[in-house]
Design a protein around this nucleic acid. Structure first.
Lengths: 244, 244
DNA sequence: GTAATAGTGTCTCTTAGACAGTATCCT
DNA sequence: AGGATACTGTCTAAGAGACACTATTAC
């Protein structure tokens, strides 16, 4: 009943919202969970001038074959990293989130090994930096609805850490079990039992031995690689100190 | 480096992809998991004429405050149901999925009580119908990439059924525990132990007693309502016949 | 040797799964 | 009474959590 003209069928003339892609890039740095942010230009005509925001931007119809390719491109541009763990988080869209008009953003989240930090900072300018997640959540002052998006990303990450091998993607290979445990504890915000942790990880069959590795300790530990980098393994149970 | 004109900052002049919202609407009918599809117009200029597709369409910038409101509106238009369980599934976007050009769709999935079937069919025309999910997955012939989307939705649903109270949203209240178990078994495709099932459900504390109800059986069973319709409860463990 | 971290053994207690048994209703 | 379905009890075995113990290195 809205289409008076036949051509409206083939190429609808609705007003089109902006389409963007944003990425929540996590890493472990100084034993803390950090996220990569970029500073918005200070030009007055820009929305949220000077505020920090998630890296991202408009979909480029010519460059990007699909959404994931667009996310991968933006990630490469900001960090120089080509193939980290990349997962879709969800999408946020509405009339109010961007002062320029109705917009929808497709959000991905990525996990980077802590090592690539130097690489990441070197690749780009001074308007990019790592921020501690806990501090950001305590007092969120991000552009757009990025505070809300960051919260959703952290919740997804923390929740998945309870029952998957996701944290392994935050480490450079080869890594040791104590290192992996350290990452779990950092993300979860609590300590876990060593013995149970080891049994659990080895039982899940996602680690391949890669020879002994001299870590920060005295005794060298067994190094491991991921048997399958395409995604995490799901544990049959959740981590939990005595029931739930 | 691309913005020659200052005004490009405030209102970017990138070509904008189409923005749509699609919904995967599940229900239980005849002890089978079904999904609602609509038939595409047979006009030759339309993409995928005559094929069945997920209900959905373009975001209406004037009508829809945000994506979820848009999904709720489309769901209301197709089924007449106002407030079912509605959850975001993800987004699919790319140059190839719609012959009219680069498009991105935000997909939600909804769970409806089987009862509202008559309502749903009455509310709309003959180009809407329920399809058995298993048959669709066996030979998918849907418009756009909706086959892929449907698969993702079913996987999400089946996976969540293993460790959440989601199936309760597929039943009209009040419902009995045997009815709920029946739904679990239908979605999972296998039978579960009665005793363990009951213990599990009651321990999760999401059911409120609502008096005895005469079901299809001889002995009346206790009826239950959801204590909280805003979302499912997560169980600490997964359903599993002896290990995983 | 000592210190420090890597890795293992063992005990206990919870609880899921299996299945048998009891209760309550209808015809 | 008999049949059908709702609901409960019991047994067993697996596995998580807790913690003490041993092993291997650097100094």
């Amino acid at each position: 009943m809205k289409n008076h003209v036949p051509t409206a069928r083939t190429t609808p003339d609705f007003p089109r919202p902006y389409t963007t892609v944003d990425i929540v890039i996590f890493t472990i740095l100084d034993k803390a969970l950090k996220v990569l942010l970029v500073q918005r230009p200070t030009h007055e005509d820009d929305p949220f001038p000077g505020l920090w925001a998630l890296p991202g931007g408009f979909v480029n119809v010519e460059l990007d074959a699909d959404l994931e390719a667009c996310a991968a491109r933006k990630l490469r541009e900001k960090t120089g990293v080509a193939s980290p763990y990349l997962e879709q988080l969800g999408s946020w869209g509405g009339a109010a989130r961007d002062p320029r008009g109705w917009s929808a953003t497709h959000v991905y989240f990525a996990l980077l090994p802590g090592l690539d930090l130097a690489l990441a900072k070197g690749a780009n300018a001074a308007d990019v930096d790592w921020f501690e997640v806990d501090e950001l959540l305590a007092s969120p002052r991000l552009a757009f609805d990025h505070g809300e998006i960051l919260l959703a990303a952290v919740e997804r990450l923390r929740s998945k850490v309870e029952y998957t091998s996701l944290p392994a993607f935050l480490l450079a290979e080869p890594f040791t079990l104590p290192q992996l445990q350290q990452v779990y504890e950092t993300v979860l915000g609590r300590s876990v039992d060593k013995s149970g942790f080891r049994t659990r990880m080895l039982a899940a069959q996602f680690l391949q031995e890669a020879g002994h590795v001299a870590g920060p300790s005295n005794r060298p530990a067994m190094g491991y690689r991921l048997a399958d980098r395409s995604g995490p393994v799901v544990f049959p149970r959740t981590f939990s100190p005595r029931g739930h």
